[in-house]
Amino acid sequence: MTGDIARPQLSLKVRLRFDRRTGRYLLLYPETGLELSRTATEIARLCTGEWTVDEIAQHLAQFHTEISPVEISRDVLDFLKTLAGRGLLQGLQ
């Protein structure tokens, strides 16, 4: 599935939570969590199943003009593939 039609969504077992102690967001799932970087958080927040990969990248590109949209798209897709590889994401296959 390509970026123009894939609509990634966090798996049912995954929760995105803000940790007030560290000021960072965590992806929580059974027995483990991922402390996300700022850009990883921006991407994860848009994994609602309603945004395509391309829409996510285009949306973020509006706020990060210091880097090319192509590079953002690549980073977004790489990150989403990593999450999918851990079983944390659906809708990307």
Binding site: T32, L36, T39, F79
Partner: peptide
């Protein structure tokens, strides 16, 4: 804020 490659650190839910 500048773009940085998205990353994460795995933490055990102890």
């Amino acid at each position: 804020m500048n773009w940085e490659a998205p990353s994460f650190v795995e933490v055990k839910m102890d």
